[in-house]
């Protein structure tokens, strides 16, 4: 978690992806401290992207969360957490101790700097856009499902009746026309903020400092650190508790980082196999 005054600059991932000229890296800053759990983002996303229903509606008993998770047909998901924890409302009087606190957070694809989904995709269907976001090309995806197991956040998912995978595109079709993503447009409290990632990171630092000053020591940023296991996210968050409380991994990592070591082990294992069989033949000269 960053505590310095200067927000770390987001890695310019477009250059790494081979764009000589490109717009600034765009992203989301989701400030969960002002989320009111209205789910306008979920609805706006479903409508703009024409996402099908997730299946028969069921009451889950998970507070107000009947969506339960991000999926191929849910690209924004609002989590609800009820906690028995004495807290002071930001700006409220010091003695205002409440028994129950309610955390709400709108989750989304993180548009990772090191995107495991993109790295493992065998067809090149997943690609890096000029905005630094990660998008599936649905005319290329063959539904191998590799990305689903690779994503350290459990974001991308397969639509079984369709056969392909789907996830948030950061409204690639809107931002190219200068529009802001549907969820950010619909959010009534500016919990979801869209903009150039560097600006968002600065704004988030300021907001975090305000909250700490207001006596909300639990507040922390998540996904903002280019030194983490995915070199930071294009969509990062301000949370009021540990990430795992929201269903987020505390220390996500792009498994592809270990790929050189994995190939090396596989190569030695392959040689071991050959040696083993050679030994089997060497020991059989008479019997054979």
């Amino acid at each position: 978690m960053t505590t310095g005054e200067m927000a770390p600059r987001a890695p310019q991932v477009q250059e790494e992806a081979g764009y000589p000229r490109h717009p600034p890296r765009m992203g989301f800053f989701t400030d969960t401290s002002v989320c009111i759990g209205c789910k306008a983002c979920e609805v706006a996303c479903k409508e703009w992207n024409r996402l099908p229903a997730d299946g028969p509606f069921e009451l889950t008993g998970m507070s107000f969360d009947n969506t339960t998770q991000l999926s191929a047909s849910t690209w924004r998901h609002v989590a609800f957490i009820e906690q028995r924890k004495p807290v002071r409302a930001p700006g409220g009087p010091a003695g205002d101790q409440q028994d129950l606190r309610w955390l709400m957070a709108s989750d989304v694809c993180k548009h990772c700097t090191d995107a495991a989904c993109l790295n493992v995709c065998p067809t090149g269907s997943l690609f890096r856009t000029e905005f630094g976001t990660v998008v599936v090309q649905d005319d290329v995806c063959n539904g191998c499902g590799y990305c689903v197991s690779a994503c350290p956040y459990g974001v991308i998912d397969k639509r079984e009746d369709d056969g392909r995978v789907f996830k948030c595109t950061l409204c690639y079709d809107r931002i190219g026309d200068g529009l802001i993503p549907a969820c950010a447009k619909a959010c009534p409290t500016e919990s979801i903020q869209y903009g150039p990632l560097d600006e968002l990171l600065e704004r988030a630092e300021a907001r975090l400092a305000d909250l700490h000053g207001d006596g909300v020591p639990d507040a922390r940023l998540y996904g903002n650190d280019p030194a983490d296991g995915v070199r930071g996210n294009g969509a990062f968050f301000l949370l009021l508790d540990e990430p795992e409380v929201y269903g987020l991994p505390p220390a996500p990592r792009d498994a592809t980082r270990d790929l050189p070591a994995m190939w090396a082990h596989a190569a030695v294992a392959a040689v071991t196999l050959v040696c083993g069989i050679a030994v089997a033949f060497a020991g059989s000269r008479r019997a054979g």
Binding site: S149, A255, A261, M262, W263, A266, A269
Partner: peptide, 25 residues
């Protein structure tokens, strides 16, 4: 015969990635 260990090791699945060194053997 051994690349399939890399295939499943290069994922966020804890039991697969956690064994990425020994799985090929």
């Amino acid at each position: 015969a051994t690349y399939t260990a890399v295939l499943i090791g290069d994922t966020a699945v804890p039991a697969w990635h956690g064994g990425h060194r020994e799985m090929p053997f």
